[in-house]
């Protein structure tokens, strides 16, 4: 408690004259075609964007792309028959085996290809990181232009944890050579869903 008081006292003594809050200013970047820009930015970030899908398209895509892999997990009821790995575990370490996970996200950001993933759609926070490959489904209409719009849309206090994810895990720490798949997902597919979010099973 001593240090707390000491630090705050010294800050009070040393801080400059109080300034008013900076004037509100809007940065309105508007993209002509949100989905197209979003898709380009997902690709730039090293991911794959599938711009128009129905649930059955997604399921066929997943079977075609990841059908040969085992340990497929999903939080989405409609895809339950595609998955072979149950997320019904209490210890997140058990997810280490997962080869591919498919999850939902609230929305995407066109300027950088990021999707907002939060606890609301997850059984475990580590799922999007520990799975070898990740796929995310967002409603096609749920795209915003910029990060300013993103923070108007999301209330970060509604969730215990949330993350903007743009593309797969990557590093360029060895001579600036881009390598995909550092610690998190080795690949990211984003599906833009063009129908009802919760179809009857």
């Amino acid at each position: 408690m001593d240090s707390r008081k000491k630090i705050l006292d010294q800050i009070k003594a040393n801080k400059p004259q109080p300034l008013p809050s900076p004037a509100e200013e809007r940065f309105d970047a508007r993209y002509a075609d949100l989905a197209e820009t979003f898709g380009e930015m997902v690709n730039t970030a090293g991911g794959v964007a599938v711009l128009t899908s129905t649930w059955s398209d997604i399921k066929s895509h997943l079977f075609a792309t990841f059908g040969q892999l085992t340990n497929r997990a999903t939080t989405i009821p409609f895809l339950a028959d595609w998955a072979d790995f149950s997320l019904n575990v209490s210890d997140p370490h058990e997810l280490e085996m997962i080869n591919v996970a498919v999850i939902e996200a609230d929305f995407g950001v066109a300027e950088n290809g990021a999707v907002w993933v939060s606890e609301k759609h997850l059984t475990h926070r580590v799922l999007p990181f520990i799975a070898q490959y990740l796929a995310v489904v967002i409603p096609k209409h749920a795209l915003v232009d910029t990060m300013h719009d993103a923070y108007e849309r999301v209330n970060i206090q509604d969730t215990g944890w949330g993350c903007f994810i743009a593309g797969p895990s990557k590093t360029a720490d060895i001579e600036q050579s881009l390598v995909i798949g550092a610690h998190g997902a080795r690949g990211l597919t984003v599906f833009l869903l063009d129908e009802q979010p919760n179809p009857a099973l």
Binding site: W161, G162, C163
Partner: peptide
């Protein structure tokens, strides 16, 4: 919104870092 637009562009030229993780409550 302001800082995340600036940070990665200034650092590496990416439009945002791959993960911008918001910790709000313990797991």
């Amino acid at each position: 919104g302001v800082f995340l637009r600036l940070l990665a562009r200034s650092a590496t030229g990416q439009s945002v870092t791959t993960y911008s993780s918001h910790f709000q409550r313990p797991r």
